[in-house]
Amino acid sequence: MKGRGTAKPLGALVLLFALWNGGLTLFHGWASLWWLGLGVDFLLIVGIAELLGKMIPPAYAPLYRRSLSVSFPLLLFIAWELLVRGGVLSPDWFPPPSRIVQALWELITKFDEFSKTSLLGRPWLLPGAIGGSRTETVEELLAESHLYATLMRVFVGFFLGAIPGILLGMVMGVSPTIRTMIDATLSAFYVLPKIAIFPIMMLIFPDPFGEGPKIAVVAISVFFLVTINTMVGVRDIEPVYLEAGRNYGASGFRLFYHVILPGALPVVFAGLRLALGTALIVIIAVEFVRAKTGVGFLTFYYWEILSPEKMYAGLVVVMVLGVLLTAGLKKVEQWVMPWRRP
């Protein structure tokens, strides 16, 4: 009954949408009025989605909402594609999504003979290298992969930063003396942009252009975030859990293992999630500045040789990496903290 009441306005909105876009196209209005065209389109789409939502039976409401969150970005890509093809947006700055996808495919499947690299290197040679029938070794083949370079730096840096960060954070959370001694220094280092200490790292390490300084910068960024979050996590444990632990005979390491550690874990993982994102940001920035490998280098390289679709493809890789790494951490979190599973 309710649905019938909204059917008419819905039809009117769809008609208006068609007329507006058709009219703009017919009278060549897009070139000068594209911002107005898109703005009105957005409002019309919101109206249509709202009315559609009212007509959907409640059982399908979650499905409808999910499809909304997927189809809107898709719609954006279509609009982008059409605006470029219609000559409104310049393909030099905004290559159409179809060409970005194509560039991404090339990056993955083709080995760039000139720069001797690609996103994945030449994985198709790996079986031969492992079998010993090729002149290239496995290490050499891996070194050709920019994705592998970035992932290695993120992973190694993340672990080298997170493990001492958790340890120091726990100690600071438990001991007021150590906390008082270190807290101010930690806060001062925390606000420092970590990319700014990259030159110092290059001075410290014997090979300034090797992996050492890059991994060190990632590790340091991760370390401060994880330390601070772990400390807060320990301090935010409800005092009554500590009382219960002590009253039931736990002290020292057993109090730590049974009460403090699990009590702090949710905030520790919030810190790890933040740190993982930051690790990715830092490594891409470092690779922009000074690296001969990595997704960041690849992105910057294609800017230098003016290949915008490949530059965009590099950015897409970074975004996908971010989503996948965060999802992976979420899985680890559910595995470590089964009591929080819904």
């Binding site: 009253n247 039931y248 903290m337 009591w339």
Partner: peptide, 15 residues
């Protein structure tokens, strides 16, 4: 002594 707490203080991370 063993104590029963007003806030339960049952460990959420244990079954």
């Amino acid at each position: 002594t063993s104590m029963v707490f007003q806030e339960y203080a049952v460990f959420p991370w244990k079954t």
